[in-house]
Design a protein around this nucleic acid. Structure first.
Lengths: 121, 121
DNA sequence: CAACAGTACTATTTAACATAGAACAGTTAA
DNA sequence: TTAACTGTTCTATGTTAAATAGTACTGTTG
């Protein structure tokens, strides 16, 4: 269910956020589903519980999950993802596109790449 | 000509690379043009010469500029930018697009954002 | 109560980014 | 030739983000 790439330069907590969004997208995690506990997931992945906690706290701030003290963390309703998180993702996309353009990538190529990203899997 | 944003989380050497590509793109810097010297640019921008040097070394590796010991650094021919740098930029774009998708951004919106990045100024 | 949940600390390590300063070598022009 | 410029290399230091390590606390469940 969850896996990380330690060789990646992408921070573990960010990988966990994206993986969670993927699982939600794929319908494997649905609204109200219980997330693995901080400690159990840390044990499974072989990383420090604090790293998982940071990912969970981030996701709670973004509205992806919610937490009940003592009970655990759960997947939020689909519509509760923060506008600011979405705006952030869009800004990042805009920057990457602009940078690709600086390297001589054509708009046709860039559009194709985006299309492929949306068709992935 | 050159300016940096110290408040930005983007490393200075990366800002310098992008700015150089912008200047080349705008025709302000052409093939064979001399780049400002490491020391003079560092002085102008108020940053450490080593930071400029890192940017220049990066750009030399990417084929954007070339360096002659004792003479200075110069803008390369337009076609000498490394394939790997371009591939890198494309990969980054693909990742950003995929991430935006995870946050629920539609392909139409993503395509529009890319279009705007290519139309910028 | 025991076992599980999250929370909140402080301390440490590692790597990236940036700065600081010195020393060395090649080029150019007075 | 020498002074003033170029780039190059090196070591050391400070800062920050990311991750680890360990401890201790509170709330929930069976």
């Amino acid at each position: 269910m969850y896996m990380i790439d330690i060789k990646s330069r992408v921070p573990i907590y960010e990988q966990l956020k994206n993986r969670t969004l993927e699982l939600i997208m794929a319908g494997i995690l649905a609204s109200g589903d219980k997330m693995p506990s901080v400690r159990s997931l840390a044990g499974d992945l072989g990383v420090n519980p604090n790293t998982i906690q940071k990912a969970y706290q981030d996701m709670e701030k973004e509205g992806i999950i919610y937490t009940v003290a003592g009970r655990g963390s759960f997947v939020s309703e689909n519509q509760t993802i923060n506008e600011s998180s979405i705006r952030n993702a869009i800004e990042k996309l805009e920057k990457s596109a602009y940078e690709a353009r600086l390297y001589g990538v054509t708009i046709e190529k860039a559009t194709l790449v985006v299309k492929q990203a949306f068709e992935r899997e």
